[in-house]
Design a protein around this nucleic acid. Structure first.
Lengths: 217, 217
DNA sequence: CTTACATTTCTTGTATACAAAAATCTTGAC
DNA sequence: GTCAAGATTTTTGTATACAAGAAATGTAAG
């Protein structure tokens, strides 16, 4: 992997973080000149970074008017989570017949570390291991294109997934679902794995109200 | 919809077409200066267009080296078609319980026009109506985010799908599959719709050799 | 006081200029 | 003749300059 990044790329990453972390509100204009000053660069790399934001879906560009941050609303989030659920289900379906023994072992280990993290109330580790769990399934689908798409959406939804997992009782239940998923994969049951992953990721029932509530905060 | 495009956007579209239509070979460097001259603009809009190509996956950028066209190889195409199959399956699964009567009617009409086009040996119309058929299902899923993702991939695979459909006997068989899909949607059977769409889109059996063969041409 | 229009200012989009890194060419030693 | 090191050219990445369109402000008429 190429570690050397051009300045514009670093700025784009930073800007994504800024949009993520709520420094901007929906509809805010991303002023090229102001950003150029705050990053101490010219407008050129800023414009490249903004284009990346637009093409990633974090912002919208109106020709000759500027680019404006577009934070997903409740409906957008529901749709994105539903799409994520379907993509993860597809990964699970394929992984059921393709994942390696190493992959299955990694899933088990990761789940173990997840459980330990819950016991220690170690949120950061839990989030990290949870991410690894899902990425291991993407990898297990043995389709690098699908894996990349899955990672892209996972990354896009990351901040919202975090707020979801904070709710009481959600983490133990989530772990139980992980076990179910692993069992299906071990049995090579693609349909069961797909179903388990879809239900695990989907926003349904009371999770919906929790998601809405988290948006106002 | 905003119809006014900035110059860079028009150039990006043209460049995509050029890469599509085989004017460039895999690994070709997209020379900024040469392109600027041929489009009679400065490097600035060319660079924006190239960035779009890179972020769309048509080209790869190596920092301080330039951007190079990346045409998908056989493995890439298999992976992309498999992903498309899963995404279309997801659309079908959701559409089974959500598509409107108008949507179902449109599917029927479109299939009719497809059949007529086959009788007239009218390839262009057939391709167009086939595209509409699938997009109607995306729409039927009632998830605008998923719909957009599906359209994106469909667009990316369009040139390869066309070469596929040219093979003898493929078009009538494809139409039979369309009927099966519509039937499942009418019955509200999500799983059947998903299965039918997955099989319809997936590259399997002799289609694989046809796909490989078309790559050498 | 409100509204329509003109002027001004500001912002984006594009062109050009410059700096730094990579590729290429030259030259010299072995 | 081959290889290596240095110089030269090319090319990318960034900064700045300029042009055109949009927003803002001011002014005059009703």
């Amino acid at each position: 992997m190429d570690t050397e990044l051009t300045r514009a790329e670093k700025i784009a990453e930073t800007l994504e973080q800024l949009v993520f972390s709520g420094d901007y509100k929906d509809g805010d204009r991303l002023d090229e000149i102001r950003l150029a000053e705050s990053f101490a660069v010219s407008r050129t790399p800023i414009r490249e970074a903004l284009q990346r934001l637009v093409l990633s879906g974090f912002a919208e560009q109106i020709p000759r008017r500027g680019v404006f941050v577009r934070l997903p609303g409740p409906v957008d989030l529901m749709e994105m989570f539903e799409t994520m659920a379907e993509i993860e289900a597809a990964c699970g379906r394929l992984a059921a017949s393709r994942i390696s023994d190493e992959g299955l072992a990694l899933l088990d280990e990761t789940n173990g570390r997840c459980l330990q993290a819950i016991d220690r109330q170690d949120l950061e580790t839990y989030y990290a291991e949870n991410e690894i769990f899902h990425q291991t399934i993407y990898r297990g689908a043995a389709n690098s294109f699908l894996e990349k798409e899955a990672r892209r959406l996972q990354n896009r939804l990351k901040p919202y997934r975090r707020t979801q997992l904070r709710f009481r009782g959600r983490m133990p239940q989530s772990m139980a679902e992980h076990e179910l998923i692993v069992a299906a994969l071990q049995n090579g049951d693609g349909e069961a794995a797909a179903r388990a992953l879809r239900d695990h990721v989907a926003v349904q029932g009371e999770k919906f109200q929790q998601l809405i509530a988290s948006l106002n905060a």
